[in-house]
Design a protein around this nucleic acid. Sequence first.
DNA 1: CGGAATCCATAACGATACTG
DNA 2: CAGTATCGTTATGGATTCCG
Lengths: 133, 133
Amino acid sequence: MTAVSPKPWPDADPRVDALVNDVIGRVADKWTMLILEVLADHGELRFTRVGKLVPGISQKMLTQTLRQMERDGLVVRTVHPVIPPRVEYRLTELGLSLGAAFCGVWTWAEDNLERIETARRSFDARQDLLTPP
Amino acid sequence: MTAVSPKPWPDADPRVDALVNDVIGRVADKWTMLILEVLADHGELRFTRVGKLVPGISQKMLTQTLRQMERDGLVVRTVHPVIPPRVEYRLTELGLSLGAAFCGVWTWAEDNLERIETARRSFDARQDLLTPP
DNA sequence: CGGAATCCATAACGATACTG
DNA sequence: CAGTATCGTTATGGATTCCG
């Protein structure tokens, strides 16, 4: 992590804001995060292996998400010109740093899972009181 | 942040994993993050005011996202029984802690915006080389 | 003012089939 | 094995209208 501004929320400039939001939108989706995790855990992996390590992902989304991540400079794709083909994926330094940044969110989610589920049940119970069919 | 496991990536249990992923999937979307930010910045806000502070959000998504956040215990919704109606939203302690956790991702995005854009341009340029119509 | 309800376009995704 | 291509479905989100 490089320099951090002193304010609790980093920026107010709407232009930077929009870009940051765009980046986050691309980076913070379900599959990207899961692939990020397995690559951070296992280092370099083959295409099929990544697919097996990410629970419910379809082959289409696997390809698509890996391409995006490659485009964004989060992973490097290495093609070994052999038959059958062998393609390895690993995180770049940028990808690793993103993993580190997201680590806080993962632990937050873990730490607060029950709190959230309790809140949901409570909320849903309140809703049911207002609509008893 | 409470106790953190020693490993670089927090968990390997597939069940917890799935739940965490679910929570992250809900919590890490575009609008939730933006609303989280404006509420963290401004404290308590009225419905319309939040809408104005979040750049391109539609009224539908504003309502929907705020409801979800309320259900998850991230915000509290206070209705003042006056006319015209006055409804205020503010972050709970849980919401604030999520904001703090996401701060790392925001600063990461800010710090690496240019790196990502450079990577994208480079990637796109490489692609164009392979398909010159 | 703060929504709820409806309609509609399109983007996202999964399943399937085919290829080098 | 590591994809690409196509199709059909579902989910998502904007625009609009109406209501207490």
